[in-house]
Design a protein around this nucleic acid. Sequence first.
DNA 1: CCGTCGATCTCCT
DNA 2: GGAGATCGACGGG
Length: 204
Amino acid sequence: MAKLELAFYEQDDVVKVSRALLGKLLVTEIDGVRTSGRIVETEAYAGVTDRASHAYNNRRTNRTEIIYAPGGVAYVYLCYGIHHLFNVVTHGRDIPHAVLVRALEPVEGLEQMLLRTGKTKVDYTLTAGPGSLTKALGITTGHTGESLLGNTVWIEDAPALPARQIAVGTRVGVAYAMEDAYRPYRFWVKDNKWVSRGKGLVRK
DNA sequence: CCGTCGATCTCCT
DNA sequence: GGAGATCGACGGG
């Protein structure tokens, strides 16, 4: 199906975009090789008011500047010094909202994914988890700022999932964000085996 | 099944 | 110096 257009990324509700991205196809074409996967898990990061966001309180650094760009570009950052995490920038200029893609169900280029990851067989570790899926698709921090309307990394449309197939929870690994860690900003496809094993915070 | 630990870049104190 | 939007290896139950 067709590439998602600018209007999709410029929507002003990052939570809505996060849900809407479930089921869509994340594609890369690098050195002429196409690899892709169906998005099955996402998290919303709501900018300046969200303690879990890198842009909380209008923080601007070299790394995070791209989140302030208009929607429709990639924000890829290095996590723990090792893992490249892919985000979709949303909303308009100077509104630093983003959606983290946390897991894919692999669709095209499985052999290439195995080459990139050094794995010998396809199992859920190939693309379940934000650091794993970028390795499989060849996404690195070098792609930060890349337009998602271009020909390197983009997202293709697919029919919206019915609400009953979407599960909602709290985000993974953001306990430091205090009360914002309890925001229901993590979305995944129910019963899909490619969803990451991460667990969100549960209020006691 | 679960817990711990190392890897090692960016940002903050 | 320490923590972090993670992962895989290892050890114990």
